[in-house]
Simulated assay, not measured.
Amino acid sequence: MSPKKNLDQNINQDKLSKKAYSLFDFTKKEKPFLIVICVLISIAGIITPYTYAAMWFGFGLAAYSAIANDSIQTIGTFIASNQHKKWYWLWLFMGLIFVATVTYSWITYGGDVSYERLTTKGLEKAPESFVFLQLAAPIVLLIMTRMRMPVSTTFLLLNVFTYQAGTILSVMEKSLSGYFLAFFIAIIVWFALEKLVKNYLKGKPAPYWIYFQWITSGTLWAVWIMQDAANIAVFLPRQLDVWEFVAYAGFVFLGLGFLFYMKGDKIQGIVNEKSNVTDVRAATIVDLVYAIILFYFKLYNSVPMSTTWVFIGLLGGRELAIALGKEMGDSKDRKKWVRRALKLAKNDAVKAMIGLLVSLVLAVIINEGVRNEILDYFR
């Protein structure tokens, strides 16, 4: 065997050893979490035949897992830039906005808390029975969230309930267009503002900035709920009565409290690793641009979309604009920052794509209608 082949073989063995050690290290550090996952899987297996109990069990898992994963989009910068504040004040602010937003939808749309996102063809029917994999989908989302993967909860939770492949394609089309729109808008906005922001962000923020940030974060959170409440409500009847609504809103409200107490948990690192997001002024700009984009897509049509894809597109474009706008004497330094920005954008997109692939596999396995449409297409 040639020296080059020996070297390549050794490199491959080192890579495999590192991956094996990383997996072993994860299971060792996350032993309590993995025990909880095993318990949840066991309960899901037992409870699946009992429709009403399975409905509320699935909702509870979906509510926490969806908000925990998507928290990086809406309250991630809010948490990052308000670390000095007491967690319960942050919780009450965001929690009451959630209650007000879903209450408006419930009253306006006759018991529908999803702002009519679940009236889309293929999702308009509430589940009359459940299969194990539908209850397992939010458990998979919990695991991916723990691994800091920005997975699309829209894909992972809605795709397992739709009975039409066309609905999945419509959601994918809208979500991917949102990603690219957010990416290019972020480049334009932050490249245009880079010099102004860089000069203005020096020193301690003026006191009034905290009010701007809370207003924009609250607005973003409300608009996000209008888009993604469907991901949680998909387990439930399409029109909730009073007690079902109280259970829905109350559970999510308490779950938000736990999330704020944990300061966003593991996935918060995706926000914290980006440039300047702990600065209240930078966080305000991120939230404002994101809220405008989401509101545009809300008005565009009622088809659900992945807000995760919009968010990672926004952060990716922002990082690239910041890198391109840096004033450096050495072009190698600029290239280094551009490579870093592209690497961050690629890593987030790859992780989100893994979630999409998982959701597509689950949708094909679970839903006969989706399987038949795909088979008919290839015949």
Rank of each mutant, 00 (worst) to 15 (best):
G76T: 08
Y21I: 09
L7P: 01
P49F: 03
Q13F: 13
S17N: 12
L61Y: 01
G76C: 09
S65A: 14
P32H: 11
Q13G: 07
W56A: 02
P49H: 01
L34P: 08
N6M: 08
A66T: 06
K18H: 12
K18R: 15
G60K: 00
I11P: 04
K29A: 01
F26P: 03
S65M: 02
S17W: 10
V36D: 04
V36M: 13
N10C: 08
I41E: 07
A63F: 02
F26V: 11
L16R: 12
A53Q: 10
S42V: 14
T74N: 10
S71I: 10
K4A: 06
A66H: 04
Y50Q: 08
I46P: 01
S71F: 11
I47E: 03
F26L: 11
I72A: 15
K29Y: 01
I47N: 06
G76M: 09
I67N: 02
K15S: 06
D25F: 00
M55N: 05
K5I: 03
P49S: 05
A62P: 04
A53C: 03
I72T: 09
F33I: 08
K5P: 00
I46A: 09
T27A: 03
T77E: 11
Q9R: 10
Y52C: 00
I35Y: 13
Q13S: 12
T77K: 06
F33Q: 05
K19W: 05
W56D: 02
G60Y: 00
I11T: 13
I47D: 04
G76A: 05
Y21R: 11
A53S: 10
A20E: 14
L7R: 10
Y50I: 13
P32K: 13
F24T: 11
Y64C: 00
D25H: 10
N12R: 09
A68W: 13
F33N: 10
K31P: 01
F57T: 07
L40M: 13
G45E: 11
D70P: 07
A20P: 01
I67T: 12
F57H: 04
K4V: 04
K15C: 03
K18F: 03
S71L: 04
N12L: 11
I43T: 15
D14E: 11
N69D: 04
S71Y: 07
L23P: 01
P32Q: 09
N6C: 01
L23N: 15
F24S: 11
N69C: 07
I75C: 03
I35W: 12
G60S: 04
S71E: 09
L16Y: 06
K28R: 14
L40C: 15
F24D: 14
I11F: 08
M55D: 02
E30I: 02
L16E: 13
F33K: 11
S42F: 15
F57E: 09
A68F: 06
A66K: 05
A68Q: 14
S22Q: 12
P3F: 05
Q9P: 00
P3L: 10
F26A: 07
N10H: 11
M55H: 00
I47M: 04
G76F: 09
P49G: 06
Y50P: 00
G45K: 10
K18Q: 10
I46H: 04
P32E: 12
